Simulated scan of single mutants.
Amino acid sequence: MRKIDKKWGGKMTLTKQFQDEVATKVTRLLEIYIDEIKGTDQWQQLSDQYANHQVVSQRYHDIYDFIQFNGFYLDREADASRLFICERLVNIETESIRQRGHYRRIPAYNLLECVSEASSRYFENDGVDIGNNHTDGRSIYSPVVDLAIVPTVRCRRSITQPLGRYPLFNGNLIFGELSKLSFMVRFQTEFKRIANNNLRAIGLNYNDDIEHNHRPLYLFAIEIENQINKKHLMGDFINSLMLSRFPVVVVPETKLDDCLEIIKLSKIISDIKDVHVFEILSRVMVLSITQFRQIINRMLETKGLLPLAVEEFR
Rank of each mutant, 00 (worst) to 15 (best):
S158R: 13
I228N: 12
L300Y: 02
I222W: 02
Y166R: 07
I224Y: 02
R82Q: 15
Q161F: 15
N198D: 07
L74F: 08
L241K: 11
V286F: 08
G131R: 10
S282F: 09
V90R: 07
N196P: 04
R200V: 14
F278K: 07
Y50Q: 09
Q294G: 12
I202T: 07
L29W: 07
I106W: 01
Y33A: 09
L217W: 05
Q188H: 11
L14E: 00
Y122C: 09
V22H: 03
N213D: 09
L300N: 03
T189S: 13
E117T: 03
D20F: 15
F123W: 15
R154L: 14
D274N: 12
I269E: 03
T94K: 10
A108T: 13
S240N: 08
F66I: 02
I85S: 02
F187R: 01
T13K: 11
I4S: 04
A309P: 01
L219Q: 10
M299V: 00
S96F: 01
Q294L: 15
V310S: 02
R283W: 02
L300Q: 01
Q44V: 12
K11E: 11
P216C: 08
R293G: 01
Q19N: 15
F84R: 05
I37D: 05
D257Q: 14
F313M: 05
L281E: 01
Y218V: 05
R156W: 06
V310A: 00
L241M: 15
I97D: 00
N205E: 10
E190P: 04
D146I: 09
F220R: 02
R104W: 05
L281Y: 08
E87I: 14
Q161W: 11
L308F: 01
I63F: 06
A221C: 15
L243H: 01
G171F: 00
T135D: 06
V250E: 00
H102L: 14
D236M: 06
Y218E: 01
H212L: 14
L89S: 02
K25F: 07
L83I: 11
A51L: 11
F278E: 10
V145Y: 00
S282Y: 05
K267N: 12
V250C: 10
H232E: 13
R59F: 12
A195V: 09
E95V: 05
D79V: 13
I238S: 08
N207M: 03
I130G: 03
G101A: 08
A80G: 06
